[in-house]
Write a protein that binds this DNA or RNA. Structure first.
Lengths: 240, 240
DNA sequence: CTATTATTGTCACGAATTGAGACAATAGGA
DNA sequence: TCCTATTGTCTCAATTCGTGACAATAATAG
């Protein structure tokens, strides 16, 4: 949730929110940005609301920019969660109270919300996560060690992962999960972290090269006592 | 759009709608249900609104039931369209006027709508399309010969097709595009209509059989002067 | 300077899958 | 009984994939 003021209710479309599953990759781990609300032990995906005259996609881009400082990120919408009972008013009431806001004045926040979910693949190192008005932290958590999430956010993460997993080739190539240049090993580790399986090195390398999505650059001398790997980058095609 | 009354505005979530791309298959053609509004020459996808306490998915199911009489149909949500300018008030105003409804009273229908889009694969023969209060026809049109559609509905159809095309195997097996029993040729024609390409008969047959999704039944004696084909049906797995 | 070691890029070979045609087995009609 | 259109299956080559082998390093240790 983004900056909140009493006017938020009238500036924004009612009953509509978005949530974002922001993936990052560090070492061998796939991570997600998770927010924690002040003094509540309540964890949630970063989300926000849509201005009355704003494109839905722009609203999410705006939120992501506030959260990560990053612009021009490839966002992919993957599902809209619309069960009537997905909003449990209790945690939100707690969040308001602990933030010194009156649940009466902010009653609109306790109502039902339909949430459009997006995911983004961003470069872990480029980001300094920014908590927002209601939350005191916005941190990376490994996907397989998430804190308990409020409402249906665990389900949203699960669906994001499922979506990401199929046609992963194209998705990784468009996102920014890896730095601009990376080794084949790093690429393989990213695949393995996302798919949750281990892959055969030689087969993987052959398949990646045959996709014609990679450009080969100079070698990377890591200081290790072994052959230096090539660096690769994705060949970027026009925005479709 | 479904039944409309002055109370619709307060019974439903504001600014939220759904649209459905209902696919049917007849002969060799893939078709879609399209509505035409009374005396307007305005064509649109069947859609509707969501009750304040209704699950989004249930709202769509309800609309589909009204439109086709069919229950228990596999619906798949595929995208939410949220551009601020996707709603052009003019056609909707025309529709209201031509239906003898005052644009002032029904002003909420002219506002911005976010629309969650679903597709369904249903058996052409099971359906007697039902127009709703505002429309005078609800008819099948071949996907490649659609009338000009209002707003961004052509885009919605395009995206539905794109979505349907990948992982078509699983999707066809879950939907009801074909009758309960069908020949291999009918199955191939459905694939070809959806993918827009022609497929090799022998390769297709081998691939289909190797998927272990089909059960073989008795032969169909069509009256034609040639070998009778087997009938097949999809093996239905538990709902996931 | 040479031997050692961990890694990486590539190749080789059999297994599995796919493309494309051949062919036998019908179900009627002539 | 023969003919024809269609269907089910097989074959063979082409391609892709799983798997291991192997040579080419980039330091480090002796």
């Amino acid at each position: 949730m983004q900056k909140i003021s009493p006017s938020t209710a009238i500036d924004h479309l009612p009953h509509l929110a978005y949530d974002s599953v922001i993936f990052g990759f560090s070492g061998t781990q796939l991570k997600i940005l998770i927010m924690e609300y002040h003094n509540t032990n309540i964890f949630a995906l970063p989300g926000g609301f849509v201005l009355k005259n704003e494109n839905l996609n722009d609203a999410v881009r705006r939120g992501l920019k506030e959260r990560t400082g990053l612009d021009n990120i490839h966002l992919e919408q993957f599902y809209t969660f619309g069960d009537a009972d997905r909003n449990n008013a209790e945690p939100m009431r707690t969040i308001l109270v602990k933030n010194g806001l009156s649940p009466e004045k902010y009653h609109w926040m306790l109502e039902r919300f339909i949430s459009v979910a997006y995911y983004a693949l961003i470069n872990y190192k480029d980001v300094v996560p920014q908590p927002d008005a209601l939350s005191d932290s916005c941190r990376w958590y490994p996907v397989n060690a998430l804190p308990p999430l409020m409402m249906d956010h665990a389900l949203i993460v699960e669906k994001a992962l499922q979506t990401l997993r199929d046609n992963l080739d194209r998705k990784l190539a468009r996102g920014n999960l890896l730095p601009p240049k990376f080794t084949m090993k790093e690429l393989q580790q990213a695949y393995e972290a996302i798919l949750g399986t281990s892959l055969l090195r030689t087969t993987f390398q052959r398949r990646m090269l045959s996709l014609n999505l990679l450009e080969r650059h100079e070698k990377q001398y890591s200081g290790g006592a072994h052959k230096a790997p090539y660096l690769y980058s994705f060949i970027r095609f026009e925005a479709s």
